[in-house]
């Protein structure tokens, strides 16, 4: 891949702190010692490779990739956007994996004991590769909010988990996409762990152009990964 390129640092003014006490699990899990800075080496600048063969035809359509005897229940949505670097350039051919609860707010995960129905036609996981302009597109069901044990009467806002690799091992990103206007965002310590000025970047936008008439509404969610430190010059450094 692009072994001669190094990447800008993780923007710690945009990311949450390691420990955000309102999100209880961070208290015993977030590291307390400062991260140790190291140079980006071949280990960090290379990236695991996945060919198109790792992606099945229906992998980006969560309304069909686990359907058994019908269609999943809920509001059908298109979630699409572009993956860009910090210079606004498309990140091409990069793997995106998503997972989410069903319309009732229930995950298929065995440890999810929320008293809400599973949907026999919905698994809730998908993946795709970005195209040459950095675009990705999923078809899914709008996930429901669900209760969790963080504090009394705690509810997670509707969200979709995203996992991306980008062009190197260091450009990895794991995040969550939220929906505009969700009243639960104000009460969610995971969303609120992000510095205030950066929170909007996690909220998708309703986008009429992504809707499919008589079939699905559309939400746009662009993702920005760490970009190259500088444009590589002709001559050596």
């Amino acid at each position: 891949m692009r072994r001669n390129i190094t990447y800008k640092p993780r923007d710690w003014s945009s990311h949450p702190p390691m420990i955000h006490p309102d999100y209880k699990s961070t208290r015993t899990r977030g590291p307390t010692k400062p991260l140790i800075p190291i140079p980006q080496t071949l280990t960090d600048l290379t990236v695991p490779v996945y060919g198109h063969e790792a992606i099945g035809e229906l992998d980006n359509d969560l309304t069909r990739n686990a359907a058994k005897n019908g269609e999943p229940i809920g509001e059908r949505i298109v979630v699409a956007g572009r993956v860009l670097d910090e210079d606004g350039r498309p990140v091409r051919n990069t793997l995106i994996e998503i997972w989410q609860a069903n319309a009732a707010g229930r995950y298929i995960h065995r440890r999810d004991q929320h008293h809400a129905p599973l949907d026999p036609n919905f698994h809730g996981a998908g993946r795709c590769l970005t195209d040459d302009d950095g675009w990705y597109r999923f078809v899914t069901i709008r996930p429901g909010p669900y209760p969790w044990q963080n504090h009394h009467n705690a509810w997670r806002p509707s969200h979709i988990h995203f996992s991306l690799f980008g062009p190197s091992f260091v450009t990895r990103l794991i995040t969550q996409m939220y929906f505009p206007g969700d009243p639960l965002l104000a009460y969610d310590p995971i969303f609120q762990s992000v510095p205030g000025h950066a929170r909007d970047r996690l909220i998708s936008k309703f986008d009429l152009d992504l809707t499919v008439p008589e079939w699905a509404t559309g939400y746009r969610f662009d993702i920005v990964l760490r970009g190259p430190k500088e444009t590589p010059m002709e001559a050596g450094k």
């Binding site: 910090e86 809730g124 996992s163 990103l173 794991i174 995040t175 969550q176 760490r226 970009g227």
Partner: peptide, 18 residues
């Protein structure tokens, strides 16, 4: 830059099936 890094969020407890 106009393009700011998308903030990180936890992977949560329920990633295994994906």
């Amino acid at each position: 830059s106009m393009w700011k890094q998308t903030p990180s969020q936890t992977v949560g407890p329920y990633f295994a099936y994906a």
